[in-house]
């Protein structure tokens, strides 16, 4: 198992969840008074989702590279495919 898969997936879900929550509560000034007026849920959620996607991307690349190395022709274009 490549640990980047679960890490990526978890942060992607967590990030989207928080960003979504941030969007819903965007007008709630009282709630964000705590975080200095910033909609921290939205921004931090997006950052986490991006990190999750990056980790997933790395894992997919590594999996493709492995497939390519073992002579699997099915690997499409893009990262990891040695050509």
């Amino acid at each position: 198992m490549d640990i980047r898969n679960p890490i990526g997936l978890m942060f992607l879900i967590l990030g989207l969840l928080m960003a979504g929550w941030g969007l819903i509560t965007n007008d709630n000034a009282e709630m964000y008074a705590k975080s200095a007026g910033t909609n921290i849920n939205l921004w931090w959620g997006l950052l986490m989702a991006a990190f999750g996607a990056f980790m997933l991307g790395l894992a997919i690349c590594a999996a493709r590279k492995k497939a390519a190395a073992s002579g699997d022709k099915s690997c499409g274009s893009g990262c990891g495919c040695s050509k």
Partner: peptide, 11 residues
């Protein structure tokens, strides 16, 4: 508790 609104608090 001081800085985290709901959502970030859970995190």
């Amino acid at each position: 508790f001081k800085y985290c609104p709901t959502g970030l608090l859970g995190l």
